[in-house]
Nucleic acid binder design. Structure first.
Length: 422
RNA sequence: GUGGGUGUAGCUCAGUUGGCAGAGCACCAGGUUGUGGUCCUGGGUGUCGGGGGUUCAAGUCCCCUCACUCACCCCA
């Protein structure tokens, strides 16, 4: 037992070698977003509690029982973000980014927090990348976001994803559907919690996984049969454009998402090897959200992708490139004077762009050489008293075992030349 | 919040009807006073999750507790 302290319950954390996979995924996303013209946003991890209550929706589980809410010393009620979209929109509105060219295209990343019981792929502190296009109603923008996520996953080597697609309608047609669905659901044999949900948020009942509930839902009315003309046209266009990009999808009229703000296009990426938490990422359109939080009418679409689940999927598909940091040159000093010289040499190599490391703590040659082998270096630079006296160092090719003496003054250039030739 | 499973070395895990805490990998040291990755030799690095109980004796049996984990719920 190294310490009596443990991480708080239910959090995910990454340390070597898995942390390399996490970083690779996040870096890949940054590149993909940047390539598509999305700018980076660094946001606070907490916001006013009311923002999430209004934005995410008072009736959602996220708001009613999963938020990390606390009071600061000034008596303000603050909440650790349970998701990104609402905070992104708040920031865009606050700083007037929507006053310029539309859509505003931004992305963000970091931890989010929900107080839930942890299980595979679900943690109290979890990590997302988030991307939003705010200020456009064009279905092409919907598809741009989907394609970006899809290509991101594919670039990581994931091949077993499925894309589920639905439309939840708009302010015009959703209430009509909602009423029809409610009427249907009220006639079913359901437990008390679910009956309550029928009244508060009937769409979510469609998502129930319990077989006894599922069986009763077979003849439930579907959103897609109740879309108004505009929503239907939008939805059809999204599907046409997806087909143009050769992105396969599954029409899933039962796909509803847990956050109240979604309108029209909603989608989810599922991975079959993740266990119960198979949703690896999801998003959709939120054309009324800006007004919900007191802003101007401003449509938007975006997604959040779970980095924890992305890492799990990469591991499950065995595409997690777990690479320990490796260097090109490793310094092996023998004695104090040599350590000082090698220390300077390694710093100089790094400054000139060569990845380099060295042995510390006065290790004996054998131990230091072991370090050289583990470091993955192509060359070891060995310096002892005899070498210092001769004004040179031993440069050993660790793959072939060949070793030559190189004058100290020529070390950096010689090493750079040799590395360039490889 | 509700169920099930599991807690023994850094990791993966053995440990019989209760009888001196183990293996593999990893790590460290030596074989080699200045040469790694192979090989040989040696080293256990431990609050058996914690507390209480039964017993001559508890990793093992009983009670409580904590943690982890999977699932429900919910979602990333």
């Amino acid at each position: 037992m190294s310490s009596n302290f443990q991480a708080p319950r239910g959090v995910s954390e990454y340390f070597p070698p898995r942390s390399a996979t996490f970083l690779a995924a996040r870096d890949a996303f940054a590149a993909a977003a940047t390539r598509a013209g999305y700018a980076y946003l660094e946001l606070p991890v907490f916001e006013e509690t009311r923002l999430f209550a209004r934005g995410v929706g008072e009736s959602t589980d996220v708001v009613t029982k999963e938020m990390y809410t606390f009071e600061d010393r000034g008596g303000r009620s603050l909440t650790l973000r349970p998701e990104f979209t609402v905070g992104v929109l708040r920031s865009v509105l606050q700083h007037g980014l929507n006053k310029g060219e539309l859509p505003v295209k931004v992305w963000a990343t970091g931890p989010a927090f929900r107080y839930e019981r942890a299980q595979k792929g679900r943690y109290r502190q979890f990590y997302q990348v988030d991307l939003e296009a705010i200020g456009s109603e064009d279905p092409a923008v919907d598809v741009e976001t989907i394609a970006l996520a899809w290509d991101f996953y594919r670039d990581l080597g994931l091949t077993r994803l499925s894309l589920h697609l639905n439309s939840l309608g708009c302010r015009e047609c959703r209430p009509v559907y909602r009423a029809a669905l409610q009427e249907f659901l009220r006639r079913l044999d359901l437990d008390e919690d679910t009956r309550k949900r029928v009244e508060i948020n009937p769409l979510r009942v469609l998502d129930d996984k319990r077989p006894e509930v599922r069986a009763q839902l077979e003849d439930a009315p579907l959103v897609t049969d109740h879309l108004c003309g505009a929503c239907k046209a939008h939805h059809d266009r999204v599907r046409e454009l997806l087909a143009d990009l050769s992105i396969p999808w599954i029409d899933d009229p039962r796909l509803v998402r847990g956050l109240d703000y979604y309108t029209r296009t909603t989608y989810e990426f599922d991975h079959p090897l993740l266990g119960a938490q198979s949703g690896i990422g999801g998003g959709g359109r939120y054309d009324g959200l800006s007004e919900d939080i007191g802003g101007p009418p401003l449509p938007g679409i975006g997604f959040g992708l779970g980095l924890d689940r992305t890492v799990l999927a990469m591991e499950a598909e065995e595409v997690a490139a777990v690479t320990a940091p490796t260097v090109d040159v490793y310094g092996v000093p023998l004695g104090e004077e040599a350590e000082r010289k090698i220390f300077g040499l390694i710093a100089e190599l790094r400054r000139s762009g060569v990845a380099a490391d060295m042995s510390y703590d006065g290790k004996k040659l054998k131990g230091a050489m072991r370090g050289a082998g583990r470091s993955g270096a192509a060359y070891a630079v060995i310096l002892g008293e005899r070498d210092i006296a001769a004004g040179s160092a031993q440069v050993k090719d660790l793959a072939s075992g060949d070793q030559v003496a190189v004058p100290l003054a020529e070390l950096v250039t010689t090493l750079k030349e040799r590395l360039a030739e490889r």
